[in-house]
Amino acid sequence: MSTQITEREEESTESEPETETEAGAETAPARQRRMDEKRRRAADRETERERERAGIEGDTRTLKVFRYDPEVEGKEEPRFDEFTVPYRKGMTVLDALIYARDHYDSSLTFRHSCRQAICGSDAFFINGSQRLGCKTQLSDLSNPVRVEPLPHQEVVKDLVVDMQHFYDQMDAVEPYFQGDDVPGELEEQRQSRENREKIKMSTRCIWCGACMSSCNIAAGNNDYLGPAAINKAYQFAMDEREGEAVKQERLEILEQEQGVWRCQTQFSCTEVCPKDIPLTEHIQELKREAVKNNLKFW
């Protein structure tokens, strides 16, 4: 779906909630005290909101956020909504989205959880590149900040994309350890420090999908395993704790038609990876392994 669409201004609307109190069995003075307290607190909240409004007149940033919902009138056709949020030092794109949702529009929808670049939920297309919302400082971006769902994936709603294809590609490389010679239950398989170091970067993948979304080859070919899945296979293929036979099987999966040979070394995946995994290098190394492997059987 194209995200090149018209933009419109989002009105922020706020209403002070009216709350009813049932005093129940409480005594009159207790009730009075509580009501006074409640009024005081309501006034506090109002003051805080005023401060927020005042903040908005100070340093602000503006988000232009992609909106789409297949079943809500006015949102079936994708559009951009504009949110102006108060800025403070250290504020990330995710912070700004949360502010907009909690203060202006509770239907603004995006995945997020850990807020520290480890759960991989909040990869978005921010000012034209794949980034994690939580790891992107507003101060590093030109204003206004354009936030769109990851390209080349089906949009479910607003910034939420369907991740199923990504998960399917991960599953296709048998993404689990297959050691064949496990020692006793209180004894470990030995692994050299060098070997652990070799696979270290590959193990850092957080399944955010930024690499797949950035890859031109994957965009035009749904069958291509893609950088994340190949990197996952790299982790196991290079792990000395798996035996030779398993490595053979892994290389066979990787060098099939939709495997490593599709990669055209454009490095876009490596550029966008928020965990700095050298994805293209890993793919190249597996190509070399595959060639060596084939020579061996000549």
């Binding site: 689990y176 350890f177 239950e185 470990e188 420090r193 652990r196 982790q235 792990d239 704790r241």
Partner: peptide, 22 residues
């Protein structure tokens, strides 16, 4: 101890000492 070693047997990438143990 048994549960931790179980994770190692499932391939968890523990940091390693020079002798290859976790």
């Amino acid at each position: 101890p048994r549960e931790t070693m179980q994770l190692e047997h499932w391939g968890m990438a523990f940091s390693r000492d020079d002798d290859g143990r976790v």
